[in-house]
Amino acid sequence: MFKRAVLLVGVLLVVTAGAKPVVVGGTVASTTEAPWAIALNNTQSVSSSGRYCGAALVAPDKIVTAAHCMDEAVSTYYAVQGRANLEDDSVGQVSAISKAWVHPGYNTKDHRYDVAVLTLATPFVGVPVLPLETRARADRRGAVPTVYGWGDTQGTGPDETLQKAAVPDLGDQACLAVKSYVSNGYAAATNVCAGYLAGGTDACQGDSGGPLVLNGRLLGVVSWGQGCAQPGKPGVYTEIAGAAKALLQQVR
């Protein structure tokens, strides 16, 4: 069950079909360069590897993901760190999830505050963490953050393997200019609009909750979009700064 909230014909849907993994139009990434990249797996996944969503390690015992990923019992989730190829269980470490906090402002109607903090039953001690970007001004047109994930590649990359893609920050107006995005809740205060207006590179199903990184900080998490890598349809990310106060209370 691979997930990313996808906007189709003006309606927000959560895709749970067995899509192939990884970022569309990206390149292979290593867990050495992104040790804080976490695969949030689930025992109910249709994949033998358990892949379900992405997340980022922000403290030894805390990961940040998308709220819409949390649609199963907490006991069915587990975090995997240090495993670029999810089918290679000889590497990396695994932890169950002991607690889940979903932002109280999140709702499935407009997907604002689409963010959650999960507590690891077994902390990933000694692993570098990704600091939260709490400054709203970091989300500015022209910046080029990088998204990481194991989601659908649509044939542009290898299956089951962590990938990354540079997705320019287009500025809020690029998404606010798309009528269907406005009607489905895009908000400058809580979202980041990133990608290419020409299409070709984007997060996709299975990348939900994965980190959008800028200058070594967690700028946002993969939230939703209209299709994947479609012209004129950028990716929508939950902006960490827009939920910083509540997130910091959970992470500290």
Rank of each mutant, 00 (worst) to 15 (best):
E87A: 12
Y52Q: 06
L40M: 08
S47N: 11
S90F: 05
A96K: 14
G50K: 06
L118T: 01
A66R: 02
I63S: 05
V80H: 05
V58L: 02
G126Y: 12
V91G: 01
S90K: 12
V58Q: 04
N42F: 05
Y52W: 15
A73F: 13
D71N: 14
V58I: 11
G50C: 05
T65E: 07
P104V: 06
S49D: 14
S95N: 11
A67G: 05
L132P: 06
K109I: 15
A59W: 07
M70L: 15
Y78P: 04
Y113C: 07
Y78K: 06
V117D: 01
L120W: 06
V64F: 04
R112H: 11
Q93V: 12
V129G: 00
A116C: 10
N85Y: 12
R83P: 04
P131V: 12
G105M: 08
A84R: 11
N41S: 13
Y106H: 14
A121T: 12
T108S: 15
S49W: 07
R83N: 05
A79G: 03
H111Y: 15
Y106I: 07
T43D: 08
T108E: 14
A84Y: 06
H68Y: 05
L120M: 09
G54N: 01
D110P: 00
D88H: 06
V127E: 04
E87K: 15
T122N: 14
A56H: 03
G54Y: 08
N107M: 09
I63A: 00
G105Y: 07
L86D: 03
S90W: 02
H111K: 12
V80T: 15
R51V: 14
V117H: 05
